[in-house]
């Protein structure tokens, strides 16, 4: 039971971070389908940092550097989307797809190149970071508390405050709803959209890092992040683009994802004798069902996906 709570919380943390990233980006008016790719790149940045730090450094330094590295890689990756979508008016869905493919390909090529240069026989795309990872975990009895759970919670609260209580948040909203009106009162729409995309990059990258450190101590980058970026988008839609609802939605999805990891620990689930594949599919099936019920009255930001053109009214 404790294990189930632990996994639920950690997967929910991933989903909260990434879904909030998507939320910021969409409120500024840019659809970010590339979150999956951004997660992979963020995970790569964090994993490489952990690999090079090893186990020697003090915990606080490890946490700071690793988080910083994955956030920066995420932002860098999101800028690819930002520049093309905001300044060059490119199709955002296409760009997002490209970003997903690019993230996966870059990660594999880079990791393999590093592995090959260290050992000529090592052709795997796996990075091991077991030693540095322990800095993130505090054992409380049987419960493994992960600093990321706290970080995700803080980010959730901060997002709520930023989006609803600050000038910046209101302006961001305006740019996603009616950019022409926002521009007419002197808000720089391009700047706001860049801000939205970069925040989504930072949170997406961080989410990727949390995902690969959840439970395992090495990661095979050929696997990417198994559609978690898209699950996060489903969480965002389920949460109706509102931070607090996103938090609750993430808990629900995190629970079903956690179930596939730990269902063997429950006698009544084992007695059902369902194949394990069913549990693997569960998060995706649930999200489809949930989407069917909430999409009809969904209130997405009005101007999302439409490149801002000053000359248009």
């Amino acid at each position: 039971m404790l294990l189930l709570i632990q996994y639920t919380l950690i997967f929910a943390s991933v989903l909260v971070l990434v879904a909030l990233g998507g939320c910021f980006s969409e409120h500024s008016g840019v659809i970010n389908i590339g979150l999956e790719g951004i997660m992979v790149i963020g995970a790569l940045g964090g994993a490489l940092m952990m690999k090079f730090l090893g186990g020697g450094a003090p915990a606080a330094v490890v946490i700071l550097l690793v988080v910083l590295s994955s956030v920066l890689s995420g932002i860098l990756c999101s800028l690819l989307l930002g520049v093309a979508a905001i300044h060059f008016k490119a199709d955002q869905t296409l760009l997002g797809t490209a970003l997903n493919l690019l993230g996966a390909a870059v990660a594999v090529v880079l990791v393999r190149a590093i592995n090959l240069s260290e050992d000529i026989d090592n052709v795997s795309s796996t990075i091991k970071y077991g030693e540095a990872k322990s800095a993130f975990i505090i054992r409380i009895g049987d419960f493994e508390f992960n600093w990321f759970m706290l970080i995700a919670f803080v980010v959730l609260i901060l997002s709520y405050i930023v989006l609803y209580k600050t000038k910046f948040g209101m302006r961001l909203y305006a740019c996603g709803e009616h950019p022409q009106a926002a521009d007419s009162v002197g808000i720089n729409v391009y700047k706001m959209r860049y801000a939205g995309v970069m925040i989504s990059g930072a949170l997406g990258g961080l989410g990727g890092l949390v995902y690969i450190t959840a439970g395992v101590s090495e990661w095979k980058f050929e696997n990417g992040v198994a559609g978690f970026g898209f699950l996060a988008l489903a969480v965002m839609i389920f949460g109706q683009w509102k931070p607090l609802n996103i938090g609750l939605a993430a808990l629900l999805f995190g629970f079903f994802r956690a179930l596939s990891n730990v269902y063997t620990g429950f006698d009544f689930l084992l007695s059902l004798k369902l194949p394990s594949v069913i549990y693997n599919m569960l998060p995706y099936i649930i999200s489809l069902i949930v989407l069917v019920f909430v999409s009809k009255k969904s209130r997405a930001p009005k101007a999302e996906g439409i490149p801002y053109d000053k000359g248009q009214r």
Binding site: L80, A85, L94, A98, L101, A105, V106, R112, S125
Partner: peptide, 24 residues
């Protein structure tokens, strides 16, 4: 011994990305 085959995936991904600029 030096590179991996995914290098062509990387090139393809970049080509899709660049396709976004065609309109511009």
């Amino acid at each position: 011994t030096m590179y991996c085959t995914q290098i062509s995936d990387l090139m393809i991904a970049f080509i899709i990305y660049l396709c976004g600029f065609v309109f511009f």
